[in-house]
Design a protein around this nucleic acid. Sequence first.
DNA 1: TCCAGTTGTAAAAGAATTGTAAAAGCTCGA
DNA 2: TCGAGCTTTTACAATTCTTTTACAACTGGA
Lengths: 127, 127
Amino acid sequence: MLQAAARSAQLERKYKDQHLEFDFTSTTAFIDLREVTLTRKEHELLALLLENAGEIVPRDVLLERVWGYGRDIRTRTLDVHVRRLRKKLLPYGETYIETIFGVGYRFQRYREPRNFSSGFMPELIAV
Amino acid sequence: MLQAAARSAQLERKYKDQHLEFDFTSTTAFIDLREVTLTRKEHELLALLLENAGEIVPRDVLLERVWGYGRDIRTRTLDVHVRRLRKKLLPYGETYIETIFGVGYRFQRYREPRNFSSGFMPELIAV
DNA sequence: TCCAGTTGTAAAAGAATTGTAAAAGCTCGA
DNA sequence: TCGAGCTTTTACAATTCTTTTACAACTGGA
């Protein structure tokens, strides 16, 4: 049904950058051309981080919003989920999801890496 | 009633890809050259999935649209029908109808499988 | 450097969801 | 009405996802 498809396409909210395409309404995402299926919790977690891309989201907040946990709860659940998310976002997992020690996590929009290390400088070689 | 017949012929809507031919107005379909007869429920179910090909259709929606069931109803009917559909769509059943855990099902248009595994690279062999 | 606190990790246990076979219930045409 | 075929239910198996556990690795301040 074309109308349905068109309408859902309009409502379709997405996050997109160089390598990641994330659909806030579907559990299927893309890393470059690879299709990645997220579980419900993974999808919720990444959605929350993406809504606050560039900003630190404290553990408290993540645990409260995704799991409904109150403060004083001690659990490694969040960490385990972050780990699995990073794995699915390979090879950019570590780049996208930063750990802010003692605070929480932050999703970092993709930025071209500068490679001073390689020493390869095209501009300096051309002619 | 010739006009009606003519009109219905015009309205005849079909889905077609590499292996499946599905008629939205008839319960006869084809898998490659094999004729397959769908029951009414199977036909409705597949039609709904096909109308949303490529998109996830949640269980709720399927149960509501095909069976008229409200949310809180617990039943395995949908699963049983999906199973029989997949069977009739052999050998592509599993490929066509994906399970999205915790969400629903998705019909996936047929896509040529890529076989990196074989190691056969035509480009590298041609002359 | 050392240490307390924090995060990372693998593996196992637990919970939720889906798959399946078989049987019971239903329907519609002969 | 009868019965074949279709649909739904049932009961359990299998799978998938989530959380916990136990410990290793890391961090930053004293």
